[in-house]
Structures are given as C-alpha cells and as structure tokens.
Amino acid sequence: MNIFRLLGDMCHLVAIIILFLKIWRSKSCAGISGKSQVLFALVFTTRYLDLFTSFISVYNTVMKVVFLVLAYATVYLIYLRFRSTYNSESDSFRVEFLLVPVAGLSFLENYAFAPLEILWTFSIYLESVAILPQLFMITKTGEAESITTHYLFFLGLYRALYLANWVWRYHTEGFFDQIAVVSGVVQTIFYCDFFYLYFTKVLRGSGKMTLP
C-alpha cells in the first residue's frame, strides 16, 4: 500500500458517497446517468468475485463490500426509489456499444484464460468507459449541478492517483500491471475535458457547470 493508492481509494469512496448522499437527500436523480451507475455496479461485481476465493487484507475486503453495497444502493435509488425523477430520455447512451467491445477484448487480451481472470479483465476495461454515459448525458443536457461535478472530479482523480500508484510500485517493487495501466490512462484521458471545465468553471464559483 502507498499514499497514492490510499488517497485514490479515499477519493473513490468520497465520490461514491457524494453521489449517494446527493440522490438520497435531494430525493432526486435528475441529471444522473443510471446507465453509468449500472455499469459501475457491474464493474465491482465482476472485479470483486475474489471476495469469496482469496483474502488479501481487512482493508481490501471491507472496501470491496462498501463499494458493492453503495453501488447497488445507488442503482436502487435511481431505478426504483426515485425512478420518477430519472431522466431516461437524456440518458440515451447505447451501452451495448461499450459492453460488446469490452467483453470481446477481455477474451482476447488477458493474463490468463480463466473465468475469474477474464471477469477481472472485463471489469478493468469496462471501468475505463463506464463514465461515458454520464459525460454524454452532461453534453446532451448542456449542464451539470455542481454536486455532480464534484462527484466526477473525485471519480476522475481516483484513477489519476492510481496512475501515480503504478509509477511508484514500478519503481519500488517492479510491479507493472499492463492491462490496468493502459485502461487507467484511457479512463483518465476521458476526464481531461471535464477537468478543464471543472477548474475553469465550477471552482470559479459559477456553481452550475454549463457547457459552452
């Protein structure tokens, strides 16, 4: 464990909690892409199956359970509890255009042709594109509430910190996870446009983010 990875995990947790609390307290999921949240729940489900097969640490196990519970709870809020506030017409990204290539690639490019390993690879590839429906929805509606932009900021920051973690681990322990690193770079690049708008618009106190 190193500071970059710990900070990254904390950013990830903060992002997920920000979103959950925003929906829970405002009793509305307006402007939130339910499709992205379903994809994130799928990412955690396919990645954390090793909860039942290998114990790494208390921290690892606890965080996996927390991420799974919050991810499914958020999907529940969007599609069941507050479904009347869900903008399904704005959440129109065709997720099959993500799932099919990601599934295909996870069969082609993986470390081992074993079920758990292919599912882990699938979750890594899927996570790098899972935010696209949400970013697409924001470009479609042309705006995002500031709380949603804070959610996206921490979510983007988490994987950027993981990139620093991989640089650190490469130099200190020779660790190099090619699939995770390449996917992590792609994932972080998708946030660059948002980061620019976030720093130039939201942090200047203009509250809501309106796209030019």
Binding site: R47, N60, Y111, A112, E117, N165, F176
Partner: peptide
Amino acid sequence: MIGQTSHDEL
C-alpha cells in the same frame, strides 16, 4: 511482473 493473476488492488 506482467501477467500476475492475483490482484491486490481495488
């Protein structure tokens, strides 16, 4: 170590 199949990261 490319290709390890034990993943210790979240």
